[in-house]
Design a protein around this nucleic acid. Structure first.
Lengths: 212, 212, 212, 212
DNA sequence: TATGAATGAGCTTTCATTCAT
DNA sequence: AATGAATGAAAGCTCATTCAT
């Protein structure tokens, strides 16, 4: 009965102002999604409040009522865009890493290359963005990685002399570089190549059997 | 020949317009170096023609006479910036890679993190910059890497099942990520960590000389 | 009916909206006092409706319900601000004038320099304010002054050839200039200086009691 | 014969940008005169850079190239508008004062009431303007006044017990009040009234003969 | 009725680019 | 050929005013 459920469907797609309050979380998300799109398309510096206003069909003044500056609006948008990393215990370091990478990639939309670059770009001049960059790009991944490595350590799957962190950093960096620098759309094949033809053989034959 | 050039040239190297024509290649390099510095400091979007004019001690109109737009000026500057990668045959894959990384890093000044981000940023809207990015960041490295890997292959130092390219991509990506994303100043220690506690133990052979 | 309204009403007299209707004259005065304060602090042009709303703890929409524009709200506030001038018959022109000036000053708080400037400023574009300015700043004073001068005339205390109005205008203008232009806080000392070392010696008679 | 004389006549009155450089002092004066006019018409707060640009037929960017902010532009305009006060020794205090007031008024154009109010208004928020206000409105006058009073003192024309400064302050304030507050156009009649029917009779009979 | 929130118009300021010398 | 200066077109942000509840 409440309008909230049907709200999205009732939303008029006609041009002109929406006049839906930003106190409405759906409306807020709509605006922030517009920001994310634009960040991804043009980056942080080229993003203008006019663009946001137009795409979100809100007035600039409305935006400024909720977010006090362009930087804070961008931060809010990125804050909301928190990719989910899942950790799955397969009993095998290599497979755990494969899962981690795949789950991480799954959260990457076409938006994200642009967002990542926008974050790099914007965080040179905006401390808030710099903080976000760290949290967004690093923390969730780092946490899942630590869990995987702890398990591997217990199982004795980390070869002597190896800095365990690098076991995550290396495949991760390769994938990220492909996405960020080459502009590739990251996919399963890339992950498998890094895992099967990079990590796994290097970690030694016993790992090729995947269970023992 | 002109009095203005003669009398004062040695004196005011530091203030006021240079008045040296851009047809002079040294003068041109001077201007492009200023652009590089600024690109590195503030990025492409925040770079202004006024900044360039001031730092290069030229007038904006002069700049526009030689380069038709800000984008083309930036491209020209990056075009000129060709870091040198050296390849040294040590007879050992791991040491060759270490050399490669160190030589690559040596070409990275603090300037280059900014440049790399500027390239990423600018190449989203400028095809010319995108091309440059590929050539500047990738090709020279890739070529040296191929040579190293070819030698290693001949020596049989590439373990079975390993995609040789990854042996370069992995350490390289790790270093690049640290620089680009963490904003770390890349140094020898980082290279050694990746090589000694990542690649080497995984590759097996050289492990004995380091880890034990 | 809701608990929120009841329980907290006595508590939060200091924060959040007052929710007292503007039909209540006390509430109305409260709002107008806030306007006066702000006019005095920042002047008419820099006064914003948001400031008023915040200080009066009312919503802007509420303000607009009672007063149709910023100008009319300012006018209403000034309309309400009617400083009291008292006239006291001391039997002596000079002392009567001193009383007049002191009583006039007493009505001047620090607020009023700002208000006077705000009136000057605003009355250039608003006829209503211009009318108010005349009534507020001039009429009450002029009336008291006329009474004093009439008595002095009867007592023969106005020297030949003197325009009686100037006897009021001169000390008054001096005080006003100090306040308006020098930004001085007007005080008793200023009045005494003008009366004792300006008017009195010039008027002759009372001079003997002061200057010698 | 000199071009400077005909310069104004050669100025094209056609609309559109002037393209005359601001390095040209005539052009600069033209712009600053526009600022003065506008300050006088609408005051400091309501003055917009667009107004100035339009009236001076220059682009806003041009204005900002020469003056770094609206406040500094206003300051520059007022700085240039330095009314001339002349002091003439008539041998008689009253006549000297009359000269002073007349010469002061002669410098007042219809601009000045607006300018004075603009200064009062703007100097509440801008320290530079506050400084100017003091210098512009006070110093030149004060200096001439001191000279007059020094001569009068030497001649023994200052009655006992009188604060000499008030002899200037009083007529001056009266005139200023009429101009500032009543909005009157100041004229010779006003000065004569204040001098002949205020100061002179108060300064005593000997002064009525004007020479002794 | 009082309010939270939205909005168009406008403000000061900046920038890539072009003109006149 | 090099320069000083001008300019149109934004950009980020604010304000008086108006809806919708």
């Amino acid at each position: 009965m409440t309008s909230s459920g049907d709200a999205a469907s009732a939303v008029r797609e006609t041009r002109g102002p929406r006049k839906v309050p930003l106190s409405n979380p759906d409306r807020r998300r709509e605006v922030l999604d517009a920001v994310l799109e634009l960040l991804s398309e043009v980056g942080y510096e080229r993003l203008t409040m006019d663009m946001v206003a137009q795409r979100a069909r809100a007035s600039k003044a409305t935006l400024y009522q909720r977010w006090p500056s362009k930087a804070r609006l961008a931060v809010a948008a990125l804050e909301q865009h928190r990719p989910l990393i899942t950790d799955h215990d397969t009993g095998c370091l290599v497979e755990d890493l494969r899962h981690l990478l795949v789950s991480w990639l799954a959260g990457w939309t076409s938006l994200d290359r642009g967002l990542a670059i926008a974050l790099l770009e914007g965080s040179r001049t905006d401390a808030e963005l710099a903080r976000l960059r760290r949290e967004r790009l690093h923390r969730p991944l780092r946490q899942a990685a630590q869990a995987i490595l702890a398990r591997a350590r217990q199982r004795g799957q980390i070869p002597d002399g190896v800095d365990a962190d690098l076991l995550v950093e290396m495949p991760l960096s390769v994938v990220l570089m492909h996405v960020l620098i080459e502009g590739e759309q990251p996919d399963r094949a890339l992950v498998d190549r890094v895992v099967d033809r990079g990590l796994a053989p290097l970690l030694g034959t016993p790992l090729s059997e995947h269970g023992q």
